[in-house]
Design a protein around this nucleic acid. Structure first.
Length: 437
RNA sequence: CGGGGCGUAGCUCAGUCUGGUAGAGCGCCAGCUUUGGGAGCUGGAUGUCGUAGGUUCAAAUCCUGCCGCCCCGACCA
């Protein structure tokens, strides 16, 4: 992408509306624009990042065996009346009346809709297990949205729903999501910690929140340091038997403020205790027959008798992750994107657009690095402004091409994360950066 | 939803107390000079002062209603 033809409205001033660093940087980097409280438009740079996050989430869901569908944002109230949640959900649910005076709502979650799909088609235990997910915009009419996309009213969520014949089978489905989540967040460049969670309004008896540690996190969390050192399981696991992997982690102490057991925490050796702030980026629940019973989602078992299925639901805040990643990865100059979610793989900075040698070298790099999805700053802005912009938007690598370097036969490769600069010949720089792909 | 604050140019803000022709910096446009870490000079454009009403000879400024946004708390992927 040539910057001269792109839409990247960066800001030098800090918008007064934003308090926390990710919100400020997203506004300054031209990623989002607020439309109303807790509601945002995604501008080109933000959309690129959002799509990358979404795709990684999708790939890991697919790997775990979940199957993607797409459910609507608008839902009829009838389904929610059936599950008895229409009244229970309260003012957080945005209720809408259509022209026929039918009660509708902008979905805050999709248990009812997916259960309705399930019960319409699935009649036998032989069709289980089944896990259907979708990545769709949700709306929860929070009284106080804040922190930009970290706590918006409208947000993009991956929500998966598992259907199993009994509790042991449902636990396997739960474990698959548990491992998929660890792998997903690791691929996003985040260290996530599963923490025993309150089941909240959705109910159930088995639930974990996935927390990313960040100074500006919303919740106080406590955990065993060993969890920080534990890597993600990776894709090469036995997806039919993940209990050991799950047990290894759930055996260690980890809890958010609401679930905190001070005595158990104090029992840890002092240097094993981690007390920090965290951002909830995922939440998984097993809720048994909570929806299948009232909504009559039943399958015939081997004995020919029908029984309600055992369900679970599994959310990842996709749009929230964009903010969470910035909270976890930034410096004074701006965003530092982990490579897997970076909006561009490399930024090519032409320090003197219009100078024929500089233009030729930059154009050559731009063509050669096509596979890295480069952003080429071909504008005639001043060098300082260009550097600042590139640092702000956080592209992981910068290839700096200027007349002074070219006189010496070199260009500069800068790593955004460390600030380390290396002078190389143009060909060597292209080769080095190409190896990143 | 309780408490607090703020709405003036694209952004950050001054002006409001004490009513009297709408301001600054940055950004934007033009020109010249510049060009390796957010350039300098000159010239220029841009505002229903959130909105509706009231008081007044006169309202960004005083009064009332409404709307929006932000912060603290309670609540949440």
């Amino acid at each position: 992408m040539r910057l001269s033809r792109y839409f990247l409205p960066v800001m030098k001033d800090i918008p007064a509306e934003a308090q926390i660093v990710s919100h400020r940087l997203m506004l300054r980097a031209g990623m989002i624009r607020q439309v109303a409280a807790g509601i945002y438009s995604w501008l080109p740079l933000g959309l690129r990042v959002l799509k990358k996050i979404e795709q990684i989430v999708r790939e890991e869901q697919n790997r775990s065996g979940a199957i993607e569908i797409l459910m609507p944002t608008m839902q009829p109230a009838e389904l929610w009346k059936e599950s008895k949640r229409y009244e229970a959900y309260g003012a957080e649910m945005l209720r809408i009346v259509d022209r026929h005076e039918r009660d509708m709502l902008f979905g805050p979650t999709a248990e009812e809709v997916v259960t309705d799909i399930f019960r319409a088609y699935v009649k036998s235990y032989r069709d289980l297990p089944l896990n259907l997910y979708n990545i769709q915009w949700k709306f929860r009419d929070e009284t106080r949205p804040r922190f930009g996309v970290m706590r918006g009213r409208e947000f993009l969520m991956k929500d998966a729903y598992s259907f199993d014949v009994d509790e042991p089978a449902a636990r396997k489905a739960y474990n698959r999501m548990f491992v998929a989540y660890l792998n997903t967040f690791a691929r996003l460049g985040l260290k996530s910690i599963p923490m025993r969670a309150d089941t909240g309004p959705i109910g159930g008896d088995l639930s974990h929140e996935f927390i990313v540690l960040a100074e500006t996190g919303e919740s106080q969390v406590y955990c065993d340091r060993a969890l920080l050192d534990m890597g993600a399981p990776g894709p090469d696991v036995d997806w039919d038997d993940l209990q050991a992997i799950v047990d290894e982690r759930t055996a260690l102490y980890a809890a958010t403020d609401e679930m905190h057991d001070a005595a158990a925490f104090e029992a840890l050796k002092e240097d094993q205790r981690v007390s920090a702030r965290g951002i909830e980026v995922g939440h998984i629940f097993y809720f048994g027959e909570k929806y299948s019973k009232p909504m009559n989602a039943v399958v015939a078992g081997p004995d020919g008798q029908s029984r309600p299925i055992h369900g679970g639901s599994y959310g990842i805040g996709v749009s929230r992750l964009a903010g969470a990643i910035i909270e976890a990865s930034h410096d004074d100059a701006g965003i530092v994107w982990p490579e897997p979610v970076a909006p561009f793989g490399v930024a090519i900075v032409n320090l003197k657009a219009g100078d024929s040698a500089t233009d030729a070298a930059a154009e050559k790099a731009y063509a050669a690095l096509g596979a890295l999805d480069p952003l080429y700053d071909d504008t005639d802005a001043r060098p300082g402004a260009k550097f600042s912009t590139m640092d702000l938007i956080g592209v992981p690598w910068q290839l700096i091409v200027g007349p002074k370097g070219l006189e010496k036969g070199v260009v500069e490769v800068k790593e955004r994360r460390t600030g380390a600069k290396e002078e190389l010949s143009l060909d060597a720089a292209i080769k080095k950066l190409s190896a990143k792909k």
